[in-house]
Structures are given as structure tokens and as C-alpha cells.
Design a protein around this nucleic acid. Structure first.
Length: 271
DNA sequence: CACGGATCCTGATGGC
DNA sequence: TGCCATCAGGATCCGT
């Protein structure tokens, strides 16, 4: 479900409300992708200092250690003063003095992992290889161009891999490639410097715009306060197989790359 | 060692 | 209505 925009919209929706809260207790439901990494009872008594984001991870800074939250494919967070009783797909509750943060995740590809610090091996394993933050100052065009030059995989796969630039998932990879006029199957190393520059700008543009629209709600995404997103309404290619391209009218095509669907306009995205 | 594919899990959807 | 196959916003791990 959640790519960078959905994760960032989620963060913005509860970070101010949970800031400074005292953890009263925490509880786990069914197993998520990885074990918590500490006794769940050890979280009680800690204070939440703030919420950051790295790629698609949310980092809950505690006065001692931090929690890494990942929403996987189907996860969402809610934050409420009086949450309803836990449902079958609610797998983590962090009950605090200011409200309960709850992870809802039917497919359980998501994760809640404790790390004693960002130098902790588990934090390094999950975050250490991540690429540049596309909306930050560190997403440098020169580095992006070099990164593309040395990768032979299809550009769509390179964007999804997350070791060059983070946060671009299946929706926004297709959307950014459309904006840049690049076919998803084109090998990264074959992209000219000029087109790489277009793609660099397109990634920033599409992600920033999606954040501004509250993310994309395809099936069930909502922020921690329950708000749904609207970006999907203005998708140029994602999920639009057979429908006319919004620019040239040519029917949008779909193809499979690495078990995922890619959408593109055969005319606007020449090669 | 870079790359492609299988894999974890549940729910929704469409064809027969 | 039921049954089966397919697909879904992610990312790690493993074999080549």
C-alpha cells in the first residue's frame, strides 16, 4: 500500500499528537515480518520524542532507543485517544499518555522493530543500504546520473530497488517514468544525462504532489487520523490499462516486471 | 556481485 | 453459490 507519500502523510498526521507522550504499555498480536527485538514490556515507561521518516520506514524516537515501523503492502496506522477494541488484523498497539498508536496490517508484511540506536545492527540491516531521500537536499542530480549509468537493470526495477533513491514504489515509479517520457523497460545505463535530469525532477514532482494530495487511496489507505488520499484520481498511467493517455489519447499499456505491473503510454514513453 | 525470481500473508475480484 | 486462479501499495533472501 504505502509508498513514500502515504508514509509521510501518515507521519504528519500523528507526529505532533504523539510527541512527548509516555508509553503506558505496548502489546503485540500475530507475528509480523520480523520479531520486535526486545520484550514488549520493555517499551512501557519510555517517552516518545518524535517521529521521523527514512524511505518507507517511520522512526519513532524514544528517550532510550527507537522503533522502526514499516507498513508493508497493506499496513496502516491509526492514532486515537480511545481506540475501538482490537480487530483481527490489528497487530501492534502502543498505548501512550496521549493516545494509542495502532498498526493494522491484514497481510502482515509490515514490521515493528526495536533498535537500541541507529547504530544497532538491526537498524543498519534495515536502513543501512537505503539510497537518497528524494524530497531532501541529498538527492543530487549528479549522483543520480552516475547511479543510473552503472546499473544495467530496467529503470523501473532500479527505482523500486531503493538503493539509489528511496520511497518510490509501484505507483509512483510508473507515474514518474511517464512524466519523464521514459519506457519502464529501458536499462538504466542507457538513459542519457538529459533524460536522467528529467526523471530526477519527475520523481521529486510526483512524490511532492502526492504528499500534498494526502497520498493515494487505492483500496483502504488512510492516515493515522483516518483521512483518505486523492492522488490516485490524477494518476496518468497507474491502473489505467486500456484507457486513453491523458496527453495523447493512446491506450495505456501494462506489462510485468519482477512480478509487478508497470503502466505506460507507448507513444509518450518512446524508449 | 548484479540481477531476476521466489517468497512471506490475507483479501478482493473475476471466470467458469 | 462455490471453487479456483490471479492480483494487490514491499522488500528480503537465495540461486545463478
Amino acid at each position: 500500500m504505502p509508498e513514500l507519500p502515504e508514509v509521510e502523510v501518515t507521519r504528519l498526521s500523528f507526529a505532533p499528537a504523539i510527541q512527548g507522550a509516555l508509553v503506558i504499555f505496548a502489546s503485540l498480536g500475530k507475528a509480523l515480518r520480523w520479531p520486535l527485538g526486545c520484550p514488549v514490556t520493555a517499551l512501557a515507561g519510555r517517552r516518545v520524542q518524535g517521529v521521523r521518516r527514512r524511505g518507507k520506514y517511520l522512526l519513532l524516537d524514544l528517550d532510550q532507543g527507537l522503533l522502526l515501523l514499516h507498513l508493508g503492502m497493506s499496513g496502516s496506522l491509526s492514532f486515537a485517544k480511545s481506540p475501538p477494541p482490537r480487530g483481527v488484523h490489528d497487530h501492534f498497539d502502543l498505548v501512550t499518555s496521549q493516545g494509542t498508536l495502532r498498526l493494522h496490517d491484514p497481510r502482515r508484511f509490515g514490521a515493528v522493530v526495536y533498535a537500541s540506536s541507529q547504530a544497532d545492527p538491526i537498524a543498519q540491516k534495515l536502513l543501512g543500504h537505503l539510497g537518497a531521500e528524494p524530497l531532501g537536499d541529498g538527492f543530487l542530480l549528479a549522483d543520480f546520473q552516475i547511479g543510473l549509468k552503472i546499473r544495467k537493470a530496467a529503470i523501473k526495477q532500479v527505482l523500486l530497488a531503493g538503493d539509489l533513491v528511496v520511497g518510490v514504489g509501484n505507483i509512483y515509479a510508473s507515474e514518474a517514468l511517464f512524466l519523464a517520457g521514459i519506457r519502464p523497460t529501458l536499462r538504466a545505463c542507457k538513459i542519457s544525462r538529459a533524460r536522467a535530469a528529467r526523471l530526477h525532477a519527475a520523481i521529486r514532482e510526483v512524490l511532492a504532489r502526492a504528499v500534498a494530495k494526502g497520498g493515494s487511496t487505492l483500496r483502504d489507505f488512510s492516515s493515522a487520523s483516518g483521512a483518505t488520499g486523492y492522488f490516485q484520481l490524477e494518476a496518468m498511467v497507474y491502473g489505467r490499462t486500456g484507457q486513453p493517455c491523458r496527453v495523447c489519447g493512446t491506450p495505456i499499456k501494462i506489462l510485468r516486471q519482477g512480478q509487478r505491473s508497470s503502466f505506460y503510454c507507448p507513444l509518450c514513453q518512446a524508449l
